[in-house]
Design a protein around this nucleic acid. Structure first.
Length: 103
DNA sequence: CTCGTGACGGTAT
DNA sequence: TATACCGCCACGA
């Protein structure tokens, strides 16, 4: 059984329930690559379009979207999260403590 | 093989 | 609490 980290990551991301969020490091840890959170972002970058992967539920450990606030990606991700009931603070942050998927 | 890059994380200041 | 720096590691040139 040849599971690439790529597939493993997508599998974990796909298991994140609606209304919840997870950090890159969290996904990486669960996927078996705790020291490679960057790979998670890279993997999602390759499937951000045309898939069922809930990539928008993945944010960084700061509780913020890892995109420039003036980018289209930021607007899209934020809109998708708010559509699931996730509230953003005035600083563009969310309460990971509250929406956190797993630990 | 080496070098530079990055949707990151943790610690120091 | 916010910012700066360093460490990790897969990928592509």
């Amino acid at each position: 059984m040849v599971e690439n980290n790529f597939q493993k990551i997508l599998s974990v991301v796909q298991s994140v329930p609606e209304g919840k969020v997870a950090t890159y490091g969290q996904i990486a840890r669960i996927a078996g690559i705790p020291r490679n959170a960057r790979q998670v972002g890279y993997a999602l970058h390759g499937v951000s379009e045309g898939t069922d992967i809930p990539w928008h539920r993945i944010i960084n450990t700061k509780g913020q979207i890892s995109f420039p606030v003036d980018s289209s990606g930021y607007a899209i991700q934020r809109a998708l999260l708010e559509a699931e009931g996730i509230r953003f603070s005035l600083q563009g942050r969310i309460s990971i403590k509250k929406y956190q998927w797993k630990r």
